[in-house]
Write a protein that binds this DNA or RNA. Structure first.
Lengths: 338, 338
DNA sequence: ATTAACGGTGCAACCGGTTGTACAACCATG
DNA sequence: CATGGTTGTACAACCGGTTGCACCGTTAAT
């Protein structure tokens, strides 16, 4: 037989069972100091007896909170899921929130249609806060969030953006990461360095390069900086072209671990030994880094921690904390490619 | 300057601006037939003027709906995201819901701690429905959903489960997929078939094998059925063992596309040509299938459509539809390995 | 002319909680 | 015994919508 949908017990029923008023029942369950210990016990017992669980909707209306946090992503879901960067980050958010009663909702905001829907949800006050995973794009939505006064955490450095006073920011110090990578090269005694990076206009790329330069100076001349895509194939192609141009290099700084695997493959093919003849340093500490041969020395971006931090700050802001800017630190992960 | 968080306009303000009562305003905005066209116009104009957007919390309480659907997953987030199967499926759900005002929330339910939290959310009536992506595990939660009367869609065939009367089910017809694969082999004139499948106790494996058998009968003897893991390496190893046993085969049915790539690799290594000497058929239409050499003939499981369907049924059930069972059809994708 | 029918609107209750404030009962104090 | 201060509880309003029902004015039917 189909079990009919029981209507859940309400606070009124608990109150009646305990022989007190609704308000007393509410205060007792919320452990208000104004209620006597004895009454609290009675109310709790009654609540347990009728299997009372406070209704989220009623509570949300009364306290003005939905206990839901929106996570804004600009990538389509399929890409989002296949990029381990995001998945780490999202795991961090989920982890942190699972210690509270808050729930994360992934809200896509790539197409303008999606952004409109998102906007609507915010206007309806469906969420208590927002975490924007890639705030570079879709700034119209940021404008909406600002106007509505939604507590918002931006993940990633938005250079010179106009929201510093209203939004919190969490980002990893890409320049520092660049410095760490370059420093490792320098310590290893490498003098002729090439950088194979992602797209030239990418903020992370720009910052990392600045970090490289801060350490290496003229050891990394302009003509040795190559901008390409993020994939393994891009690294491979770039290295082939380098070899064809007979550029002498004893160190390659890569914009991502996937690029690095391609670079190494090209060197192997050309009979050049990594790390004997040339050192390679990656970026991200992607899962391929440890499995690569030789295992990749790389820069680890603390993505999961960044996610946790972002979620924590969002919760703080909901409770009235002022906007903050948090910088997470990169780490050099020593393996065999250097 | 920090823009103060405007308190959003409420229905009362709209009503006042339009010179009508709250109830009339509400009905006008909801296009009730009881309100005159003239009044509706006035109310709509007023709403637009004060920038009114109905508050989700108030509405949820009044209509008894949160407009949120929980998607239950048993995998940890990282695995979930890296498995393209899930990501396709989730995309389907998201797509379908984005055409309504409903929002999906991914709810993890692998650890018992997570399941407790999930249970709590359901008891609070935070969600209007649930979609269980892998209902094989965590049946305690299903029991809770049943008791609470939460409209629920199970994705995947739960043979002989006790919930058919309360829950809807959506699944792809694995047996049919097996038949399609076997039929293709038969049409190609292959007579000595080997099957390299996933784990023996997997429901999909069992059904697919049944499909193979329905077509091939004695052409697929028991000793030619090999159970292994889902990965490429498993397919490779299995094929090596086959070759060592000098089993003559002109067709291999694989339990997954990844298995198939391993099988092909092993054949190549042994100097056996695919598809000239032996035909190979995969399963899933995973993204590796098209890129494989030779491109893999395989069985496509309509995952995205399955997701859309599941979401659609969930919406229907919220509106009172009775539980249904829906079978999605597999498709043969003809490429070069057969 | 009286009444029935009907379209349009407003009052008030309701969804399920939380919370400001009034009040009753009790104690100790002058 | 009157007064004042606690302490514990209940009443009622409130959050922001939706909705049953009563009521009004108009028109059509008897």
């Amino acid at each position: 037989m189909t079990q009919p949908a029981r209507t859940a017990p309400t606070l009124a029923e608990v109150a009646e069972a305990a022989g007190v008023s609704r308000s007393t029942a509410s205060r007792a369950l919320n452990d208000s100091p104004r209620i006597s210990e004895e009454t609290k016990k009675r109310v709790r017992a009654a609540a347990k007896k009728v299997n009372f669980v406070p209704n989220a909707r009623g509570r949300a209306l009364a306290v003005g909170r939905t206990e839901i946090i929106a996570v804004l992503v600009t990538e389509p879901l399929s890409e989002l899921f296949s990029d381990p960067t995001y998945s780490e980050f999202l795991s961090g958010i989920t982890e942190e929130l699972s210690e509270s009663s808050y729930l994360p909702v992934i809200l896509q905001a790539s197409s303008s249609h999606e952004r409109n829907r998102a906007r609507e949800h915010f206007e309806r006050r469906s969420f208590d806060a927002a975490i924007d995973v890639s705030p570079y794009k879709g700034s119209e939505l940021l404008e909406v969030l600002r106007e509505l006064g939604v507590p918002t955490v931006l993940c990633g450095q938005l250079e010179g953006h106009p929201y510093r006073d209203v939004f919190s920011t969490v980002y990893s110090d890409d320049e520092e990461g660049g410095r760490f990578a370059a420093l490792a090269m320098k310590d290893r005694g490498r003098k002729d360095i090439v950088a194979v990076l992602g797209p030239q206009d990418n903020p992370a790329v720009i910052d990392r390069l600045r970090g490289y330069r801060a350490i290496l100076g003229e050891s990394l001349p302009d003509e040795n900086v190559i901008y390409t895509g993020w994939s393994s194939g891009d690294g491979y192609q770039a290295t082939r072209r380098l070899l064809a141009r007979e550029i002498h290099a004893d160190g390659v700084l890569c914009g991502s671990d996937r690029i690095a695997t391609g670079v190494i493959a090209a060197f192997n093919e050309a009979g050049i030994s990594v790390p004997k003849d040339v050192s390679v340093v990656g970026f991200d500490d992607h899962e391929v880094a440890a499995r690569s041969v030789p295992a990749l020395t790389t820069i680890r971006q603390p993505l999961r921690e960044e996610g946790r931090m972002a979620a924590g700050i969002a919760l703080d802001m909901i409770n009235g904390a002022v906007p903050t800017t948090t910088v997470m630190h990169m780490q050099l992960v020593q393996r065999d490619s250097l």
